[in-house]
Nucleic acid binder design. Structure first.
Lengths: 218, 218
DNA sequence: CTGCATCCGGGCCGATACTG
DNA sequence: CAGTATCGGCCCGGATGCAG
């Protein structure tokens, strides 16, 4: 990418990750190291030459490393982009209200939003296991000792099993849809739906630095 | 911009702000409402047709509004991008270590990094006024009652006046350069340099959500 | 089959000229 | 000052080829 030629941290950052697809590649690698084919599967729509080109640029810039040929992972510096991707996720969450019928979906794309909604430590939370069935894979949310873990795979002994189309699932998880509305939209709910609200952070949509820093002066 | 066609919050966000120059326009408007010409000045290198096109798209998407013709400001939704721009700033800060000689610079680009470095409330901080002279305008940092305010314009009765080339100034402000090194790089320091270290947050480079959420699992 | 490299049409970007 | 118009060139997107 052509440099912006500005001595500014935002411009310098975008010189490295401002290219089309680049931050989506980082999104994929934030979850786990990926093979080339896994990246293609997690990035529907990307041209194979662009994926190769972006990976090469990311490697040159020290954000991505490949252990064996064909297995890509983020370097520590690349991992630090997690904060950027999380804020983009938070900001983009409101845009998920309606799903375009032609939009692709992968269940792994829920993992970062789930971290935002349920992450962090909160000793008062109940200990429950929730199985989340939407899209291509099953996710499991596990609350233990105040910590919530999200992982791929089925639950062992879930207190709640949710099955729904992607947009309905996101509505349930985020709290935008109540049980009745979700059922009307084709969700299947096994167990006590109220567990979700007890686990969810109420501040997950808020700027982590608080409004003090975020409001523009004048 | 062509949509990514992915039902994912990051992709949806980038559908709106992933275009080249768009987040830099937001960076400018986060500081204050701007006239068209001010935006051009704050975005050296942008083609005028692109600026007009981006502003039109941002307005259509409800992120920018124009009060009078020619005066642009962020909507509330646009302001919420502040969190994204701040994380890009934090991540890009390390890239400011060396300045390319052809890079353009505007002193207003220091305002967001200064908020990160000195923002927030800390009742233990001394009450001092620092005048910052680098680039095209003078900035003043004012610490009172634990709060630090950054504004354009000269100081009233500063305890510290810093004058330096942009990269040296950033080194001093961020803490990467000590007094001796800064002086060697052409800085002029009037007053007690140690005020800076007393005002600066030590965690300004850290992920606001903490490493718990930011580390990738496995 | 996976992991890319090559090729080419089209659209976006960048620079300049021009207008109310 | 605040944009609009135009055009060359480069990047993106989609298809295809090919080597291990």
């Amino acid at each position: 990418m052509r440099s912006y030629g500005q001595y500014c941290a935002v411009a310098k950052a975008l010189d490295l990750v401002g290219d089309r697809w680049t931050l989506l590649i980082v999104r994929e690698l934030l979850l786990r190291p990926c093979r080339y084919g896994e990246l293609q599967d997690g990035l529907p729509g990307i041209a194979t030459n662009l994926l190769a080109e972006r990976l090469r640029a990311l490697e040159e810039d020290g954000l991505v490393a490949r252990d064996e040929p064909g297995c890509y992972r983020l370097t520590e510096r690349g991992q630090q982009l997690g904060a950027v991707v999380r804020e983009l996720t938070r900001w983009g969450a409101l845009l998920m209200a309606e799903k375009d019928s032609s939009d692709a979906f992968r269940s792994r794309w829920l993992e970062i939003p789930l971290e935002l909604m349920f992450g962090g430590n909160d000793p008062g939370r109940p200990e429950v296991e929730v199985e989340i069935r939407a899209g291509d894979e099953v996710l499991t949310l596990n609350s233990r000792a105040g910590e919530v873990k999200i992982r791929r795979g089925v639950a062992v002994s879930p207190e709640l099993v949710l099955t729904a189309p992607p947009d309905t699932m996101i509505g349930m998880l985020s709290g935008g849809l109540d049980k009745k509305a979700a059922l009307e939209q084709g969700a299947s709910i096994l167990g006590d739906f109220r567990h979700l609200a007890r686990l969810r952070r109420r501040d997950w949509l808020e700027d982590p630095l608080g409004p003090a820093l975020s409001t523009s002066r004048r």
